[in-house]
């Protein structure tokens, strides 16, 4: 299907207008929205992730691709709701309290979305209680981001709040952001850390697998 190939290419190249146009064309040609999403947008973002790991593309191109995908997804959204979609898991993602930076967080959200996760985007400056609420609303994964050395310490408060709410066992807590390290992740009691949006997907899949295995069927 030419529309799908061209859609994937447009997303990978970050050509927003072309991506939107190809999505519309695909719908007009009768391609199911779920197929355009799975084999078009998701496949494109997975490919961007691979190219990133191969050192062929870098963060700026990922951002441009993610912008094209978001625009195309807007076109698909009404159709997708109508059809109903399956998901790899539900992730509540947000930038921690005190921090307003969301570019990295959005990129991770996009890569997760591209790999079939359902995303509950809590935005920026997210207080611990809000993350806890998101778990009650059905999130299996809590993903936190911080860009600042001064706000990364607020991640600990979120892990503690989840523990106090008695929800820690059933949920995977993962963190990331420029100043974060694996050591820091262990210190605050997170289950996983990834240094970039692409490896975040694999990490979330692994951590979620572990949590699900522990929880049993």
């Amino acid at each position: 299907m030419a529309a799908l190939d061209e859609l994937r290419e447009a997303v990978i190249d970050g050509q927003l207008a072309v991506a939107v146009e190809q999505t519309k064309r695909g719908l007009e040609e009768g391609i199911p929205a779920q197929t355009l999403f799975d084999d078009g947008l998701m496949a494109a973002m997975r490919r961007v992730g691979e190219l990133f790991e191969e050192g062929e593309v870098f963060v700026p191109e990922m951002l441009v691709a993610s912008r094209a995908m978001t625009a195309a997804l807007e076109v698909l959204k009404p159709e997708l709701v109508a059809e109903g979609a399956s998901t790899s898991g539900r992730v509540a993602i947000g930038t921690v309290m005190g921090d307003l930076h969301d570019i990295g967080k959005n990129l991770v959200a996009m890569m997760l979305r591209g790999n079939g996760f359902e995303i509950d985007d809590l935005g920026t400056d997210v207080y611990p209680e809000r993350f806890v609420q998101a778990i009650r609303d059905g999130a299996e994964v809590v993903a936190m981001s911080a860009l600042l050395t001064t706000t990364m310490t607020n991640m600990r408060a979120v892990v503690e709040a989840i523990g106090e709410a008695g929800l820690r066992e059933g949920v995977a807590v993962v963190i990331g952001g420029a100043p974060i390290t694996q050591t820091f992740a262990e210190e605050v009691g997170a289950d996983g850390y990834a240094r970039d949006a692409s490896s975040a997907v694999r990490m979330v899949e692994q951590v979620l697998g572990r949590v699900r295995a522990t929880n049993g069927p």
Binding site: P60, L63, V64, R67, L100, H101, D102, I103, N106, T124
Partner: peptide, 16 residues
């Protein structure tokens, strides 16, 4: 800028 609705768009456009 961090909360400016158009910042991300300008930022992404200005990177090429």
């Amino acid at each position: 800028l961090t909360t400016h609705p158009e910042f991300a768009e300008h930022f992404v456009m200005a990177m090429g």
